[in-house]
Nucleic acid binder design. Structure first.
Lengths: 135, 135
DNA sequence: GTAGATGCAAACTTTTTGCAGACTG
DNA sequence: CAGTCTGCAAAAAGTTTGCATCTAC
């Protein structure tokens, strides 16, 4: 991957993204959030940066049925987000990392009984989280 | 839901869809396939019909990361496709219904340990099927 | 100074909508 | 005949691209 300069836009976008580590977000959202600040960042720039971050592996990129646009998710360094599935709340967008033992069972079952190997980074299990279910 | 007339377009689209029961497909694909025939069906008509079929529950509608457009999947009558997850091959698009006992274990685990209730019709587990893995 | 980044506007893609005319029951 | 459907063309919505300009190193 090519050399990279550190620019204001990049720094701001990265900051935003890190603060949203427990939620999915779209390019539009990032754009709006940063436009509120004094510094205005162009939407195209947001797209270019998010895509690059996704290529670098810092973000997961995916679509899901309840959204019309692509959503991104920050991958925390200490999570190896390519090795486990993600649960995503349909309502609030919160992301739960399926990092427990059970993940292995799923993987094993799908492989053994169905000959299927999961691509975690392309898969999302959508539903309702505990908090949102109560309402 | 409103009354419905039986038209040529509808019949053709339904036929196509039923023949593709083991694969996902997009509106564009349906359109192309049917345009090959003598009868030309407008793309807007395809969209309108697929959406209606999805509303009626005959099709599942979803997006996944590796596609730029919405994909549909035919729900066979004998499958209660809203109660189990689907595995989808990234490469060939084949759909595997996770109708085994294990499905209950997943559901139970997610609920018990994570307070999460799955929305099967919005979730897709993407990966590689047995056939495609070999290559 | 040079490679890389940004803003802007225009292009593209996929999907939706309005409306007039055609078809179904 | 009334209510539905369809084709067409135009509009939306989200994303990408080309290019001139600007900035980081």
């Amino acid at each position: 991957m090519a050399k990279q300069y550190t620019t204001k836009s990049k720094t701001q976008i990265l900051d935003y993204v890190k603060n949203r580590h427990d939620r999915r977000f779209t390019a539009q959202e990032v754009h709006e959030a940063l436009s509120a600040d004094d510094l205005k960042i162009n939407l195209a720039t947001v797209y270019r940066n998010l895509d690059r971050l996704a290529d670098e592996g810092l973000l997961l990129r995916y679509k899901s049925m309840d959204m019309s646009s692509v959503a991104y998710q920050y991958v925390e360094e200490n999570h190896g987000c390519h090795n486990h599935l993600h649960l995503q709340c349909k309502k609030c967008g919160k992301i739960i990392h399926l990092e427990c033992e059970f993940m292995h069972e799923i993987e094993e079952h799908l492989m053994k009984d169905h000959g299927f190997s999961i691509a975690c980074k392309d898969s999302v299990i959508v539903g309702l989280c505990a908090d949102c279910k109560e309402e």
